[in-house]
Design a protein around this nucleic acid. Structure first.
Lengths: 348, 348
DNA sequence: AACGTTAATGGGAACGTTCCCAACTCACTG
DNA sequence: CAGTGAGTTGGGAACGTTCCCATTAACGTT
């Protein structure tokens, strides 16, 4: 009834050879086989529809060819872009990716980590939501290669790959200053858990004044409109040409809502965000953003992982990637009167 | 140096018992063990930091506790929402999910399918990008439970779970008619590959006229603005209050761009989309959408899969889920003059 | 002609589990 | 007091691979 999957041995029998040879054929030693045998095996495998059982392979030293990835929030488009980059790079190297979402829940994160480990992944890409220092320490100690993506974990001495946050903040401030804004409000979600948020916030505090900008910050536990409005309202009425800088995509969304609710004209009050989103070019007059090179970051993570696996360090992996500035109308103080089009908005 | 993972046997030795008992402890037969033994094993496992090797378990009949999911386009927010729903439900049932993205590439789809099968997944959730009929047929035949998500596959006799497309189109048409539009343009990506697109298109063609609506369709191979503009321009100038209905989220994005480029006022020319997106409430005056219950759909898929696994069919799984109408300004012909706010826009 | 040397193959033992079956211990029954 | 049965426990054989080592054949070299 159910002709459950063919096995190595069945192929061997049909090809009139031994399991060793068939194993070699599907492994890395195909060149050690005579052309004749190769062809017999090929044919047998094909008629039986044979596919190696990766579980069995993973069991015996051959390696599971599996990479694990932990994502803090799979519904965040930025995270998804990272997943996409990592998956693509992994596939290119012959690895599969098992993705676990933690929904920003540190407890769930621990569970998922255990699960990933249980599947004998050969390497782990971690976009942490909490600070799972202990379990990761254990994992590293037991020889599992490990790369942190976007966010660091406290004391953990591991490779971290992500945006060059300092450069990003600098670029943002330079752009805002150049556009004539004199006072900047930096809005971020609570930076206690995520290293990236801290790094950006600190850099902002250091670098605003040297550029002649008055600075102010707003740290949010919730992105509800109610949490945003009072500060935004007060800030919009304060002195000097003012601009708001958003620490990530979610914040940009929240503030775009805030602007709309207050009837603020983007540009007149500047609005700029880190992370590029589908709709940023769409909302008139277009929201200026710093786009992260997510595919490159994902690929770098995989490269880094495989380097660790091989023990070699052939190509240097770039840990801090530069963002790309997409300048649009939301940081232009006096809008050109020509009608706005997405095309114009997409070009810096 | 690397105290690689503890094994069942090591735990058994430390607990001074047999591997059978330890296996029972971590399996489903813990109740067959005496409390004393349980505690010894518990302690031993804890001091050794033991975690069962799921690869080994998967090898011997115990089941891999792995579910596979194939996603057509992981960068589509709708797909991600489905992944989230499936993952959540799977976890609740003690299963892990391995997600493979096919980037809408049928060739890649075949590869990924093979990979998933190679990992001995216990069940498969397929959001097809092509028509991988043959490989799926094989898979089903070899006893792997299988559920199609959102899209059907030609001749394949398998459960399909997704939106009630007919109801969705009916709801959209009802809404548009009620709002006073008389002529509707339905825009969809090429419906050759995706059953969902076909179903919606057909229903639209059937149901528009009975509601007194003049109908027109636009099928797109590309979502580039150039492909959209001519038809949109012509349609906007045609007779009767006109409205555009978008077949999915991507199309909604493309048409929002088109409206903007032409300087069309949303509402005056209606705009409505299937799939809810972050920014639909944000773009003044808010885009009316039909939201899919993605979590419910994902959960239903898992339930369906597990029913097949158990052989029982306890609870009936709803295959056709109803959408939820989010009425906003983009389908309101004469905008109320009160200032637009997202809050108002979110309530039907 | 006897001897390495290399290339191509085959046979078994692992890998860490689960599952089947056997064995042992009790407490009860007849 | 043997016999039955349930409740526990242990021993071994799988599962489908890979890897190590042994074997064979073929080919030069001395």
């Amino acid at each position: 009834m159910s002709p459950s999957r063919a096995t190595l041995i069945e192929v061997a029998t049909l090809a009139e050879t031994s399991k060793s040879s068939v194993s070699r054929f599907f492994g890395t030693e195909r060149n050690k086989l005579s052309p004749a045998l190769c062809e017999r095996i090929e044919r047998a495998a094909h008629t039986l529809g044979y596919r190696p059982n990766l579980m069995a392979r993973g069991l015996k030293g051959g390696g599971s060819r599996l990479l694990g990835m932990l994502v803090a929030d799979i519904r965040n488009p930025f995270s998804v872009a990272l997943v996409h980059g990592v998956e693509q790079a992994a596939r290119a190297q012959g690895y599969s990716l098992i993705v676990c979402n933690t929904d920003n829940d540190p407890a769930l994160e621990q569970t998922q980590l255990a699960t990933l480990a249980a599947y004998q992944v050969e390497g782990l890409v971690i976009n942490a939501s909490g600070q799972p220092e202990a379990p990761l320490q254990t994992l590293m100690h037991s020889g599992v290669p490990l790369v942190l993506l976007d966010r660091e974990v406290n004391q953990l001495k591991a490779d971290v790959i992500g945006l060059d946050n300092a450069q990003a903040i600098d670029m943002a401030l330079d752009h805002l200053a150049l556009q004539g804004y004199r006072s900047v409000l930096y809005v971020s979600e609570s930076p206690t858990q995520a290293s990236t948020r801290q790094a950006r916030l600190i850099r902002f505090k250091q670098q605003a004044r040297p550029r002649g900008l008055t600075r102010r910050t707003l740290l949010l536990d919730s992105l509800e409109l109610e949490a945003v409005m009072p500060t935004l309202k007060a800030f919009a009425q304060s002195a000097g040409p003012t601009a708001v800088l958003c620490g990530n995509g979610n914040v940009t969304l929240a503030l775009a809502r805030g602007f709309q609710r207050l009837g603020l004209a983007m540009g007149q009050v500047g609005l700029m965000g880190i992370d590029e989103l589908d709709w940023c070019a769409l909302i008139a007059p277009g929201i200026t953003t710093l786009a992260q090179p997510t595919d490159a970051i994902g690929a770098a993570a995989v490269t880094c992982l495989l380097n660790q696996l091989k023990g070699t360090t052939p190509a240097t992996v770039i840990h801090r990637h530069a963002p790309r500035l997409l300048a649009r109308g939301s940081t232009q103080r006096s809008p050109t009167l020509s009608s706005f089009t997405p095309e114009q908005a997409n070009n810096p």
